[in-house]
Amino acid sequence: MPFTITREEGTPVYTLRKKCGSIGKHGLLVLLSLLAVFPLYWMVVSSFKNQGEIFGTAFWPAAPTLENYTYAFEQMPISRMLLNSFIIAIAMTALQLLTSILAAYALTRWQFKGRGILYTMLTLTWLIPAQATMIPNYIQVNEWGLQGNPLAIVLPFAASAFAVISMYQGFNQFPRALIDAARLDGAGEWQILTRVVLPPMKATISSLGILLFINSWNEYLWPMLVTKKLESAPIQIGIKSFVSSDVNMWGSLMAATTISCLPILIIYIILQRHIVDSFMKWGIK
């Protein structure tokens, strides 16, 4: 028989290769993390640069200044627009959670003809780009007389196919025996939903709510179409006001963008574990 040399676990060669592989993986992760964080760092640093330094390559301003922040607060009502963004994002998240819970519960617990077709059609609507529905939504909002009203931003996003599909998966995994037991005890559908089904699914609902809130906060194109005044617009619309065909106020733009990112950053720091868990959970699904 030919003589072979095996490198078993625990040998110096195997240990060295394992350490080198681990160092290489961690080094790659550090590099990718730096690439992801660097634009945010550059945004914050640029917000403290004057107009002469804004196009420079220095990693830190030679003479840090707050002029960009002062100009941003003078040019637009940042505090009011941040409040608008919070109200709009919370309203959209609450409505999407409510409609998705009711729709997913009906699809999973009630047997009726066409249920599979209905769920398939609902799934296919998720593939339709939002731009394809903007014109019908815009016409409908004008017919309702909501042009310039925050409700014009919220109502077209009151339901989300992504949210319904996500809750549908969660309800499918819920034990049917508990629901049958509650029905035998005389509980109605609303009592079963609120007292039996929803309490154990708080983690799932919270994770979905975090994702919906982040998506609502970052919404830009539709609010830009239906808002007329900065006082009733979210912060993302105000940021665009610093970019025009004549003059681009890059320093003030970076300052306003930094301010708009602070609320999400604070929320992320407070709910870091839940946000990471939600991304992992819905990413796996």
Rank of each mutant, 00 (worst) to 15 (best):
S260C: 11
A89G: 07
S241D: 04
L124N: 10
F174L: 11
A130G: 14
F112T: 11
F38S: 13
L40Y: 13
N50S: 12
I270Q: 05
R109C: 05
E189I: 10
Q173C: 07
A91S: 15
E53N: 01
V45M: 14
A58S: 15
G251W: 09
P223L: 10
P150I: 09
L107K: 01
Y119D: 00
L178P: 06
Q147L: 13
S260L: 06
I239K: 01
S79C: 12
W217I: 07
P234S: 09
D180I: 08
L95H: 06
F171I: 03
I153W: 03
P77K: 02
F242R: 02
T133G: 04
E189V: 05
I284C: 07
A158Y: 06
A161F: 05
L193K: 09
T99M: 11
I259R: 01
T65P: 01
T258R: 05
P136E: 01
I78Y: 02
P200W: 06
A182Y: 00
S244M: 08
I128D: 02
A103E: 09
K49W: 00
D246R: 12
L83Q: 15
A36S: 14
A36Q: 12
Q173L: 13
I78P: 03
Y268N: 05
T6R: 10
S47D: 06
S160Y: 04
I5D: 08
P175H: 04
F55G: 15
G114W: 04
F59V: 14
Q236S: 14
M43K: 06
F213T: 01
M167L: 13
I135Y: 00
G56I: 08
M249C: 07
Y71H: 13
Y71L: 14
D180A: 09
